[in-house]
Each structure stands twice: as structure tokens, then as C-alpha cells.
Write a protein that binds this DNA or RNA. Structure first.
Length: 694
RNA sequence: GGGCGAUUAGCUCAGUUGGUAGAGCAACCCCUUUACACGGGGAAGGUCACAGGUUCGAGUCCUGUAUCGCCCACCA
């Protein structure tokens, strides 16, 4: 027996060596597995980590979960393929990079877009490399030979072709609509990139001619020359649609026009409102219905335009109280309701209040696509774990809002759209002389939504035939709206098949007190610090045991320590058993008992109950094999082992290592090589390709 | 305003189809016994949020209540 067994298990000296062994074996690529062509494929596409920072605890969790599934299926005889990649993460990365620029006293505004792109590209590639090393350190048995990046030229071109196809199919349109504008980041954002927070906002009642109007946004009211009420509202029956009135307003008298529209809620406020179509989707729709003038009041930086007269150039935040004050001086302020609660949208990155602005953008028509997705769920082609997420998915798909895919940032895939006067064309290459390209880039989810297709070699390749549709999509439950629907939609639209049959959603990894980790709270736990200290196997077990799908997990260091002790326990079991001669009969009742446990664990693995499987193998190894069976095997004479136990102990150790391997791959593989007395240069007979106990 | 989830031992959490409550850590007692002190043995600890209901039987199913958490939402 190797001398290293005389010392406690040392993950630091073991893990990277074992990982190299696996990687060199070539078995991460399932085409190299013994009998590959006759194996049934099992495929997982790794959610590509954003290549803009270190791996966090959430990454560690998904890498562990997916690696468990892949290792299990590989041992079960499947052609197990796990496809790794990295995401350029458009807006996310640009925000990270802008912060970096800010620290250096620089700004992206005024920079040459080409230079900026090049800088972010270098930054991202450097991060990507570091990140890949971190994924390896957690033991991920993914096929690096098939790795892709969302900005690989081939991926970019395919992504653009999808847009062109959707344009031809009438599924994308260029249109004016109220978009979510972040005045700090100078870009539009999709619905999922904003967060709505309820806030107490003063609600002002102003006198507007003969009417009383309510608003939370006096600063938008300069252009309000339409006063709208419900056609059935008897209180205002004397006023006719289209009637003109002269009213005294902020900067003097204006001519107001009465508009009757059913969009007005008679119950709310006074039942009368003035509209600001450029800065509200509801108002914009009313304006379109009646063919009204639409005028911008607030510029792209959040300052008032010349229409505001004396207030022009003032930031809207400062302008609001000033304008209210002026209206009060003019005797037009009736009262203020200070207790009004209003929902305010903010940029999910910088919390800047989102300003609705009307802008020409590309939108994806969601309704027909959402119907396809619902159909897949109805047919049972798409299942969710835990299953309550099906309801959430259905709800979202039943109320789809057209998706704005235009972003005014350089870091992304260019939208292949071309303009010449009023003409619009969609094509990857320039249509010719005189056409200018849309300067915008795609929302990052437009490319990551196609990720399962890209990773499997859509539209035609040997891989695509073999590995698409994939099997499981494992990701965080926070992506139930952001990512999952988009992948399902693109998969169904482009191939007619859902890109996966099962969606496994894990919860958030919180701090030891169960509180959400955040940089501002300073409670972020770096998983790599834990693996350095206790080993990756220990962290993996910590993240799995007791962690049910969809439920958040509190990451406690003492738990990690506990599983480091377990790794050492396994090590010492090996130390006890390995020197014993492996011969003679098996004790059938112990074998039967083990097999019953193994079947139970297998059933948990098949049912995605990894938290139970992990706990059961842990319990068996420590409290049954070590505490009881090994103790029983000791003879009266010191140092002697009962003859009839020897072969059985070998049997139980070997098979326990197999059951434990998906969870704790490093320590089990290390013991296995000693068990098989393998020279480290020999790459066959690795535990990772052994058969799962039946 | 809707929706979802949670409420089980001091702490963090398990408990698949209903059958007299489990783990890890912490705390208590004993043991340096020749695989392991990153260890072993033992003891202790819960009216499973509350109130009803279904059932021979409910932590597990149904209804309601309370508290906490998360998500969604273009009523000015």
C-alpha cells in the first residue's frame, strides 16, 4: 500500500492530479467511451458562466449537480456529454467593464466603439481562461473539446441568421414603442432587466381647466395637451370628444383637447388624466388610437427639453418639486396625497429609475412563439423539477409581452439589419451601396436563448443528429423567465423540438444565516476559498446533501468541514481494507443488504433526488460499513481480521466507491487507483467509467 | 393587486406514493481500543406554526388563519 495512506487524506495534493488523469483519458468526450456508438446519448448543456468575474457559490452548485448527473449516466452506460461554454453576457459584462473604467477615471462615452469593444474582448477572454480553471477545480467532467463561446464567429453568424429568418417569417418587427430606458447606461432594457419596487410617492392633484387631474409625475406634464376620460363617465358627459378648451398650465395658457378613451379607469383618482405619450406605454397607445401628437419631454440623459421652458436642462428629479411649487404659486395645486404607493421600475444593475421613452427598436412577436412553448408543456414534452415551476412557466407564457432585443451597447452581437431611407432589410452581409447598418446589438438572451442549438451544432452536423434534443437543463430558478422560455422558444421555432425534456431548477446559495449573498452586504462566500481549505469533494457534498430542488440553501463552513472529515473517513476505510487479501466467499446477507441500499440510491438518482442519494450513501459508508461491519470483522486477536469478512469488505468498499463517485469524484478515484494498483500513467480502468452497481 | 414557497430538535435542513419523527453541526457524559481524535461509544433533545376536516391511522391529503420569504404586475 502506498505510504500516502498512512497520512490523512490530502485533497490539495490529490485533486488536480486526478483531474489531469481524467482529462488525459479522453473520456470526457463520450465518443471515446468504450462502445460509444451503441450507447444511448445523455446530454446536458452547461449554462455558460458569464466570462466577467470569478465563479461564485451558485456556479459551484450547478457544476456539482450537473457533474453528478453526467457521472451517474456515464457509469450507467450512457454516452454522457456535458457541453461547456462561456457567455459574453452583453449588458452584464459591459456594466462590469464600465465600473472598471470608472475606477480608472475613464468613461465609455466618447471612446471609439471599436477600441472599447477590443478592450472588453481582451478582458473577457482573460476572465474566461481563469473561469475555466475554476470549473476544472470543481471536478467538472465536461467535454472541453466541444467548448464554445457566444462570440465565436460561427456562433455569431448563426445567431444573426436566426434573426434574418425571424424577420422573413414576420416574427420580429421594428417598431416604436415605449421602451425601458436607463439614462445611466444609455440603453434600453427588456422587462426582465428591470425591477419593480413599490415606493411611497407624493400623488399630486392639479387644477387643469375645469378638471382635477392626478399625477405622480408633474415633471412630464409640460406637453400634456390632451385630457382623457372614459366615454361612459357620466360626471364628464358634458364634454365631447375632440372638444377644445383653453386652460392655464405650467408655463401659461395652452389649448387642451378632450379625448374619450376606455383605457381610463373611472374608479381611479378623479377619472380624468392628461397624457404624456412619449413617456408612457399606456399614454402612447391612447395617442396612437386617436392619432395624437407625440412629443419628447425628457431627453436621453434624464433632463428636461426646451419644451419645459424655464425648467429646460434640469434633471427630472430636481425638477419635480420645483414644478409642483410653481403650480402651487399659480393656485393650480389642489392637494398632495403623501401616502400614495406607486410601483417604480429601476435598472436591475444600477437602480436608476427607468424612464419610458419612445424609440425605434426590434421586437420579437412573442405570442405565436409562446403558444408553441405552451403546447410542448401540454404534450408533456417539457417537465419541471420541482413541478410547481410548470405553473409559473405557463403563467408567463400565457401573458407574453413582445421582447425588445435592441441594445445600445457595443458589447454584443451586431443586429444584422440595414437601413436606406425608409427601407429596411435583414441580412448578415450588407445589401449593397447606400445601406447603413443598425448600430445596435442583440440582447444577450437572444444569443443565449439559442445556446443548446449552438452547442449541439445546429443546423446540421453529426453531433446535432446525435445529441439534440438534449436531456436536462439544470439552472437556477431565477432563470425561469429570463432564459428557459427563450431556449424553449428558439428550439421549437428552429427545430420543432424542445431543446430538452427536463428542466431542473436549483435554489439560491445563501450565506450561513440563510441571507442572500451580496457584495454590498459583504457576506459573499467564495467557493474557491472553501475548496482550497477542505477540498472540492467536501464542498460538493455540502451543496448537495439536504438541498432539495428549487429551495435555497444556507452555505455553512462547518458543514463543509464535516464532509472533509467524511472524505478522510472513506480514506481510512480504504486504509483498513486495502491490505486485506481479496479472496474467499462473500457474506451473502451483507451483499444483499448493500444491494438493497444501492437500489434505493439508484431510484433516488433516477428521480433527481440527489439530496437523498447523497445522504444515504454517506450514511451507509460511515455508520454501517465503518461503524458496524468493519468493527464486526475484527477478530479477538489484536490486528487480526476474521477470514470470512475479507472478500466481503473488498466488495463493499469497491461498490460503495462507485455509488459515492458522482458526489465525491476525487477521493473515490484516488482510492480506486490504489485498489486496482494502477500506475498513474495507465488511463484505463478509471472509476469514472466503471459500471454503476445494479 | 395577483402567484408561489416556507413554518419539523438550540442552529441549518431532510422526511418519494399517509402507518407510532431523522441528519449534520452545536451542547452533555465516557473512551487516546492496534483503519481513522478529520476518531469511537452513550445519553439527551421536537404537543412536526395554529384551528378545523377526510381516514382505522396525517408532519405527509383538504379548508381556513397567522407569520416569514421570493416572484410577477404599464391603473395615471
Amino acid at each position: 500500500m502506498n505510504d500516502k495512506f498512512l497520512k490523512p487524506y490530502n485533497p490539495q495534493e490529490t485533486e488536480s492530479r486526478i483531474y489531469d488523469l481524467w482529462e488525459k483519458s479522453g473520456y470526457f468526450n463520450p465518443d471515446n467511451l468504450p462502445g460509444a456508438s451503441s450507447r444511448t446519448p445523455f446530454t446536458i448543456v452547461m449554462p455558460p458562466p458569464n466570462a466577467n468575474g470569478d465563479l461564485h457559490a451558485g456556479h459551484a452548485l450547478f457544476i456539482t449537480l450537473e457533474d453528478i448527473m453526467i457521472r451517474y449516466k456515464r457509469m450507467r452506460g450512457y454516452r454522457a456529454l456535458w457541453l461547456p461554454g462561456a457567455d459574453h453576457a452583453g449588458f452584464e459584462t459591459q456594466v462590469v467593464y464600465e465600473k472598471k473604467l470608472e475606477k480608472e477615471g475613464r468613461s465609455r462615452f466618447g471612446m471609439d466603439p471599436q477600441d472599447l469593444y477590443k478592450e472588453i474582448y481582451d478582458f473577457t477572454l482573460a476572465n474566461k481562461k481563469i473561469m475555466e480553471g475554476q470549473v476544472r477545480s470543481l471536478g467538472a467532467s465536461c467535454d472541453w473539446s466541444r467548448e464554445k463561446f457566444t462570440l465565436d464567429p460561427e456562433v455569431v453568424e448563426k445567431t444573426q441568421k436566426t434573426f434574418v429568418k425571424m424577420f422573413d417569417d414576420g416574427l420580429v418587427y421594428r417598431g416604436k414603442r415605449a421602451i425601458n430606458w436607463c439614462s445611466k447606461h444609455q440603453t434600453s432594457l427588456s422587462e426582465v432587466e428591470t425591477e419593480s419596487v413599490e415606493e411611497a410617492t407624493p400623488f399630486y392633484y392639479f387644477k387643469y381647466g375645469p378638471f382635477e387631474i392626478g399625477t405622480v409625475r408633474p415633471e412630464t406634464k409640460f406637453g400634456d395637451k390632451y385630457v382623457v376620460m372614459h366615454p361612459d363617465d357620466k360626471r364628464y358627459a358634458e364634454y365631447a370628444h375632440g372638444q377644445k378648451l383653453t386652460v392655464e398650465w405650467i408655463n401659461g395658457p395652452i389649448e387642451a383637447t378632450v379625448i374619450k378613451d376606455a383605457a381610463v379607469d373611472m374608479e381611479f383618482g378623479t377619472g380624468v388624466m392628461t397624457i404624456t405619450p412619449w413617456h408612457s406605454q399606456v399614454d402612447f397607445e391612447i395617442a396612437q388610437r386617436h392619432n395624437l401628437d407625440i412629443e419628447q419631454i425628457i431627453d436621453w440623459r434624464g433632463k428636461l427639453l426646451p419644451i419645459a421652458g424655464e425648467f429646460a436642462g434640469i434633471n427630472i428629479k430636481e425638477a419635480r418639486p420645483k414644478i409642483a411649487e410653481k403650480l402651487k404659486e399659480k393656485g393650480l395645486l389642489i392637494r398632495i396625497d403623501e401616502n400614495y404607493k406607486n410601483v417604480v421600475k429601476r435598472c436591475y444593475k444600477c437602480s436608476t429609475i427607468i424612464e419610458p421613452q419612445i424609440k425605434d427598436q426590434w421586437f420579437v412577436r412573442m405570442e405565436p412563439l409562446a403558444k408553441m412553448a405552451l403546447g410542448a408543456v401540454d404534450k408533456g414534452d417539457l417537465k419541471f423539477i420541482p413541478d410547481n415551476y410548470e405553473k409559473i412557466f405557463r403563467y408567463w407564457m400565457s401573458n407574453p409581452i413582445d421582447w425588445n432585443i435592441s441594445r445600445q451597447i457595443v458589447w454584443g452581437i451586431p443586429i444584422p439589419a440595414w437601413f436606406k431611407g425608409d427601407e429596411i432589410k435583414a441580412s448578415v452581409e450588407s445589401p449593397g451601396e447606400g445601406w447603413s447598418r443598425d448600430p445596435d446589438t442583440f440582447d444577450t438572451w437572444f444569443s443565449s436563448g439559442q445556446w443548446p442549438l449552438m452547442m449541439t451544432g445546429f443546423p446540421e452536423s453529426r453531433d446535432f443528429g446525435t445529441y439534440y434534443p438534449t436531456d436536462v437543463m439544470e439552472t437556477g430558478h431565477d432563470l425561469i423567465f429570463k432564459w428557459i422560455p427563450r431556449m424553449v422558444i428558439f428550439g421549437l421555432y428552429l427545430t420543432g423540438k424542445s431543446p430538452f425534456h427536463t428542466v431542473y431548477l436549483h435554489g439560491l446559495v445563501n450565506d450561513a444565516q440563510g441571507k442572500k449573498m451580496s457584495k454590498s452586504k459583504g457576506n459573499v462566500i467564495n467557493p474557491l476559498v472553501l475548496t482550497d481549505k477542505y477540498g472540492s469533494d467536501a464542498l460538493r457534498m455540502t451543496l448537495i446533501v439536504g438541498n432539495t430542488p428549487g429551495t435555497d440553501l444556507a452555505l455553512r463552513e462547518d458543514k463543509v468541514k464535516g464532509y472533509k472529515n467524511f472524505a478522510n473517513k472513506v480514506w481510512n476505510i480504504a486504509r483498513f481494507i486495502l491490505p486485506l487479501e481479496n479472496s474467499g466467499d462473500l457474506k451473502q446477507e451483507l451483499v444483499d443488504e448493500f444491494n438493497t441500499t444501492a437500489r434505493d440510491i439508484t431510484s433516488d438518482m433516477e428521480g433527481y433526488r440527489f439530496h437523498l442519494a447523497a445522504e444515504k450513501i454517506y450514511h451507509y459508508i460511515w455508520h454501517r460499513l465503518a461503524d458496524e461491519i468493519i468493527e464486526e470483522s475484527k477478530a479477538e486477536t489484536k490486528g487480526e481480521i476474521k477470514e470470512e469478512y475479507k472478500a466481503t469488505l473488498h466488495y463493499l468498499l469497491e461498490n460503495s466507491l462507485k455509488l459515492l463517485h458522482p458526489f465525491m469524484p476525487f477521493v473515490t478515484e484516488e482510492i480506486w487507483s490504489e485498489l486496482r494498483n494502477l500506475p498513474t500513467s495507465k488511463l484505463t480502468n478509471l472509476l469514472m467509467v466503471e459500471s454503476w452497481p445494479q
